[in-house]
Design a protein around this nucleic acid. Structure first.
Lengths: 201, 201
DNA sequence: TCATTTTTGTACCGAATAGAACAAAATGCC
DNA sequence: GGCATTTTGTTCTATTCGGTACAAAAATGA
């Protein structure tokens, strides 16, 4: 499968998927407003007309990057959570994974929503809505993971715990972005796992 | 006190303190990169030469805004925390205060560090350093407030609790910025207070 | 071979950008 | 009143911004 469909005209000289990854890095690095078309096209190895033909304008390119990255990160978090065999160990795995994601040496530090679309959200209702829906989804999905660990009638519901976990992850992305060391971030992740696990006991 | 020092030349036609507040709002609204000098001078009611003479360039103006705002917010958080008479009530007061601060109708929603300097931190080491030092200070100061409520030898230290609290506050600023309702934010704040207070029991 | 189709590279557009130059205006001091 | 001083408003500049026009290039189909 995925054999080339043998299209008619001149073949593209770049890999759209790879180019999108480069665009993601550029948006991560400079933010949405700060990422100039020149920086984007240079990083992507693509001319402006090709960029427009393939991805539409800057804003649509950003949404494509957002969607792709959110999916990737969501999957990594779920897999990390599933590695644990207790609430505390699951949270620890997930938070440590967040440290790896947001302070990887392969990409600019931080989160494309926290430091990208959220910043733009005030002047772009579309980005605000995207962010709200994504946050709501994360809260809801993660709450499901929490259910087995929350006693019935507990003072702390699965949803509250889930929102706190997402808050910790957002905070890790922030602290990574401003250059806190991996050692410190990992300590932070472990401490948060202990505390949040204790909150439902 | 504060009597006019009777300077020599033509008197300024604007109040620098008020102008700085307007600049803060503009940076909050558009982010650092997105806030154009025209938007700034228009909001501040000041011409560009006056802006440069009074505050230096755009970057220095931003630092001035940051410093002033951080002081104000720090004070409000401390006062709110002191209104409580238990860990849970103190945290609740503080988190609810954060909701008011970050989703006030008087100013654009969100936090100038989270959605401002942190976004710029990767391309501006000065902003990264400012943010790191501010976060470290907040963690340290808030940890002192927590000490009375943390048992000796507890699995959750005052510092871990403090970092979590700051994480909750950062998260509230984020969720406020993307337009979550005050009702939802207040629920979030109350839930976080319950959970974090329970984590040290 | 040659027409058709699609992408490529270059060159360009008007608007907006951060910042500076400069003379007029408004004050205190002598 | 005049002079020194400082701020003001206007104007300018060089650059960069997001986005596009257009023709050459590279593939397929007939």
């Amino acid at each position: 499968m995925t054999e080339p469909p043998k299209k008619r005209g001149r073949p593209r000289a770049f890999d759209p998927s790879l180019a999108l990854d480069r665009a993601t890095d550029t948006f991560l690095r400079f933010g949405y407003a700060g990422a100039s078309l020149e920086a984007l096209t240079t990083a992507m190895g693509v001319n402006k007309p090709s960029l427009y033909a393939t991805f539409g304008d800057k804003r649509r390119l950003f949404f494509r990057a957002l969607e792709e990255l959110a999916t990737k990160i969501g999957r990594r978090c779920r897999l990390a959570f599933e590695r644990g065999d207790s609430l505390e160990s699951s949270l620890r795995e997930m938070f440590l994974e967040a440290v790896d994601i947001y302070s990887s040496s392969d990409a600019p530090a931080g989160c494309l929503v926290v430091s990208g679309s959220a910043t733009e959200a005030i002047v772009d209702e579309g980005m605000a809505q995207f962010s709200r829906e994504l946050f709501a989804l994360c809260d809801k999905v993660m709450a499901k993971w929490m259910v087995p660990y929350v006693r019935e009638g507990s003072a702390v519901s699965a949803m509250v715990l889930s929102q706190l976990c997402n808050g910790v992850i957002h905070d890790i992305s922030l602290r990574a972005r401003i250059g806190e060391s991996k050692v410190k971030l990992r300590e932070h992740a472990r401490g948060a796992a202990v505390a949040l696990a204790r909150s439902v006991t």
